[in-house]
Design a protein around this nucleic acid. Structure first.
Length: 334
DNA sequence: AAAAGGCACAACCGCATCTCT
DNA sequence: AAGAGATGCGGTTGTGCCTTT
């Protein structure tokens, strides 16, 4: 039975024949589609209007791009999906010539499987649950962790994986702060190197390109105050960069490279709503961006004021460190 | 060679939202 | 304001091709 819009008509279903395609293309080329429900009759097709619309949008439109998805398109899908979820029509708008159906099919048949293989939940892009994680770890001999904010019980988007058996090095995509699906395609990516002791795992993020490098350390520990019993990872506050600074600097790194930081939500929600330090320094605006804390704008501070040479040595400019650290102490005082 | 299974892609279905009267 | 039809969207199913058994 056809859809209600054409239930009174005798409608054909299933795959479209070349003749039907030709009729539809000819009609729309000459007259436009107008009201889709009237298209079948006007075009001489025994199809439902919805079916005609779908056929045109997904297959017959002249501006459609054909062929396999490029690596760039795949990255775009990943990045947008991380933020929007399964909103295929919205995702497809970022990919000229691609349809929502095409993106959805590509996701379900290819990308989803890659994420699962990496131990990531394709819905959240975070790690799979601890039971699933254990399976993954056992299977792949990987140790996996995530950045988590114990104060707000809310995860950062960033995820890293570390392979403890094969050189302890993995490329992280600076745009998403996630392991690259195809690391060979990203030459400017920072690297992360890992050291494991009996109780701690330290991670060094190494941002070498294009303008600065700095390091931070993480250690795995249990946060009973968090939402679940999942293993959590924090960046040690005893090192040069606290967690919030990590977010800010990551955002800046991305903005500085013309990339929209995937950390944007984390930067905004985690940093901006926090109480400001009582002592306000001259560089506060650079840290917070605009003053309006309710603003939905994502604010990156001005890269031009950062002492990149200082950062290249693996340290943070004193004034920046001071600000970030004061915010951090407030936020992390659980 | 043929059946079974896996896969990618096309198409459909039901529901939500929009638009028009 | 309300209802009916049109449109848009996302989940799901159907189809045909290719590979494996």
């Amino acid at each position: 039975m056809g859809h209600h819009c054409c239930s009174k008509q005798k409608v054909k279903r299933g795959l479209w024949s070349p003749e039907e395609d030709e009729k539809l293309v000819r009609h729309i080329t000459i007259h436009g589609h107008g009201c889709w429900s009237s298209v079948p009759k006007l075009a001489g097709l025994q199809r439902c209007g919805k079916s005609c619309r779908l056929r045109w949008i997904n297959y017959l439109r002249p501006d459609l791009k054909r062929g396999s998805f490029t690596e760039q398109e795949e990255r775009t899908i990943l990045d947008v999906h991380r933020i929007l979820g399964n909103r295929w029509a919205q995702i497809a708008k970022h990919l000229p010539g691609r349809t929502d159906n095409e993106v959805k099919n590509f996701w379900n048949s290819a990308i989803k499987k890659k994420l699962i293989a990496q131990g990531l939940d394709p819905n959240t892009h975070n790690l799979l649950s601890s039971s699933q994680m254990t399976k993954t770890s056992t299977k792949n001999n990987n140790v996996v962790g995530k950045l988590i904010n114990p104060h707000h019980d809310q995860q950062f988007n960033s995820v890293f994986t570390m392979d403890t058996s094969s050189g302890n090095k993995e490329i992280i995509d600076p745009k998403t702060m996630s392991p690259l699906l195809n690391s060979a395609s990203y030459t400017n990516a920072p690297t992360v190197s890992l050291n494991e002791t009996s109780s701690n795992i330290s991670t060094t993020f190494d941002f070498q390109n294009p303008s600065f490098a700095w390091t931070c350390r993480t250690r795995m520990m249990e946060f009973s105050s968090c939402s679940s019993s999942m293993e959590s990872t924090v960046i040690s506050t005893s090192s040069s960069i606290p967690p919030s600074g990590f977010g800010i600097l990551s955002g800046d790194y991305m903005w500085g490279n013309g990339l929209e930081p995937c950390f944007d939500r984390a930067v905004h929600e985690e940093i901006l709503p926090r109480p400001r330090p009582e002592k306000v320094s001259t560089t506060e605006e650079e840290i917070y961006g605009v003053n309006d804390q309710n603003s939905t704008e994502i604010n990156a501070f001005d890269s031009s004021n950062i002492d990149f040479e200082f950062m290249d040595s693996g340290l943070v400019p004193p004034e920046l460190y001071c600000n970030v650290n004061s915010v951090d102490q407030l936020a992390w005082d659980c």
